[in-house]
Amino acid sequence: MLSNIFTLSFLVSLLAGTIRLATPILLPALGQLYTQRAGILNLGVEGTMLMGAISAFSIACASGSLWLGLLGGILGGMLFSCIMAWLSVTMRANQVIAGIGMNILASGLAAYIYRLIFGIRALPAKITSFQALQFPVLTDLPIVGTIFFSHNVLVYVTFALVPITWFILEKTTFGLKIKAVGEHPRAADSKGISVGGIRYAAVIIGGAYAGAGGAFMTIAYLNTFTENVISGFGYIAVSVVVFSRFQPLRAMFGALLFGCASALQLRLQAQGVAIPSQLLLMLPYIMTILALIAASKKAEFPSAYAQPYSRMER
């Protein structure tokens, strides 16, 4: 039976699925690298992604343009993450509960917006999502063509963001400032870096990525919106960041691991394997816990991780 499953075509579709399903984890994870490096633990990614998903979907439906939808998703994520920035930087609230609160607010808000715009309907609203790009020659290559050259444009943009994120964080002044603020906000402050300003920027950049990740789900992976469209991806992305020890390249591998778990689950179901689908669906969540275990010994958190900063306190 196993030989029936693990055929070449199964492996090829599994690997292609891995890359596709890594995308909605990798995008928010890359954004969280900025946020977490600046010392903010934003558990509100889940909710930010949901707001990105609903904004992108409604705007794409209304305008008929997927690109405007994507822009809407990014802006939606940025706007929503402003609340997190305000709570964690200005109000210096406990970041963990602020994040949880954000997710609760988003789940209500997204459902409400959907209902407001689309009303009650027998069938869910649908759009034509981003289609796979056709590369001359490359797409038609056997095996390699399907695995690497059969994806939509957002997948390629996301993977291109890996080196870009690395470059910004490691090689630019802005990246240095982010790290300084996360490691030693007081020292950064004394050098004239605006701790609050950089942290706001880092949270909002994270929101843009998370919004794009949410948009990917509704307008580039599925073609519809449901209330559970994100179903834990935001939290998985946060785990990937911890697992990656705050390095973009490792975050990419972490995301691919989760993409593989999700793809494996889908492929096995499609093959009609004797394992019940509900147990297969647990796979990404079990993987998240395993990833946190694997990261435990080596994780190096920024020194000021999850610590609010105030000039007045010692």
């Binding site: 609160g101 209500g108 459902a111």
Partner: peptide
């Protein structure tokens, strides 16, 4: 729609967090 109740829940928690921090 019932989701208004969910939004109110979310607003309550955000406001309570902000107020505690304040």
């Amino acid at each position: 729609p019932y989701s208004v109740v969910n939004v109110i829940q979310g607003l309550i928690i955000i406001l309570v967090i902000a107020r505690t921090a304040f």
